[in-house]
Design a protein around this nucleic acid. Structure first.
Ligand code: SF4
Ligand code: SF4
Lengths: 167, 167
DNA sequence: ATAATTATGGACAATAGTTATCCATAATTG
DNA sequence: CAATTATGGATAACTATTGTCCATAATTAT
């Protein structure tokens, strides 16, 4: 019972994408380098984000990844579900129907109290996640990232992005 | 990201134990038979419950498992944590410190907004679970179990329990 | 005391899920 | 056409979950 590591990578990646100038795509090579992550596996996470419609991709030179929506329109719940799936965490195996006292399925019109309780808790979790957007995360990040790191990051980008400030 | 199957087994087992006359212990052979579960693995779940102090165990003939507290004093959260552990589901690997722009640890006095958001959602989940007790589950079960199954179960117990109504 | 019953916990094996890599292919740019 | 970049399938390594087995300890009844 644990989220995949890829989830953290994906959220961080989106946070970075959110900070990019509009219209600019970041290739995954740079994304992976920036966070010190294995590029091929990060690719899988980005593909999930892409399939979920949260990021746009552009192939070819000057291509890469960019957010598909404004940060305020992407919720943490969407990110989590894109990576870890939207299946319920508690899955009922209809244990009550097993064993010597079980009855045929039609005797159980609705999920039992155990399942309903577990699912109610999951709903509370989802609700909480859906109420925080990438914009909220971004704002906290801007406030709390050490100024020196901001400077380092800026410098790193300027020396790694194909053209920045040139034009 | 999914709960272990053993969780469902453990909750069902406790529900059954809750229905037992006080002072009566149920051996795990019968528990496993009643639900049609593999006994040795069910044993592992029951051991976790025992170590968490939720069930009492008695060895020897007439021994078995019994609840250690009244059903109303055992919350679903306790059961879930006994089986699946109480570690956080989202575990931070301090990604922000990685890569070419990372800074030394002391620059990050508190967990970032991403981690705090994920943890806030988990807290909502825990809160919901802590507000339902085994007594609530039991009541729902009594209301919603098909009457025929109740009868079957009663009969099964009377023919399997060492002495019931004999004395 | 002895025999029968029952839980414990360690060791182990099988299965499934996660993490990671590689490569051939397709799309885009210039 | 050449260079760049994402896609997705195949595969391998690693880890967690699921399941089994057994020697041991505790308890009860005879
Ligand atoms: S619905 Fe309830 S009784 Fe049936 S298997 Fe799920 S948790 Fe168990
Ligand atoms: S604290 Fe935040 S920034 Fe650091 S690794 Fe965890 S999620 Fe990422």
């Amino acid at each position: 019972m644990k989220h995949s590591d890829g989830l953290e990578w994906a959220i961080h990646s989106c946070t970075l994408l959110a900070a990019l100038p509009a219209d600019m795509a970041l290739p995954r090579r740079l994304l992976a380098e920036f966070f010190g992550l294995p590029e091929p596996y990060l690719a899988k996470q980005l593909q999930k984000l892409s399939r979920a419609g949260l990021v746009e991709t552009r192939r070819g030179p000057k291509g890469g990844y960019a957010l598909a929506h404004k940060p305020k329109d992407i919720s943490m719940l969407q990110l989590v579900e894109a990576i870890d799936g939207s299946e319920r965490h508690f899955r009922c195996s209809e244990l009550r129907r097993c064993g010597p006292t079980g009855m045929p399925p039609r005797q159980y019109p609705k999920p039992c109290g155990i399942a309903r309780t577990m699912w109610r808790a999951e709903a509370a979790w989802r609700r909480e996640l859906s109420q925080t957007s990438l914009a909220d995360i971004q704002q906290l990040g801007l406030q709390e990232t050490p100024p020196e790191q901001m400077a380092k990051a800026l410098a790193w980008f300027q020396s790694n992005l194909p053209m920045e400030g040139k034009k």
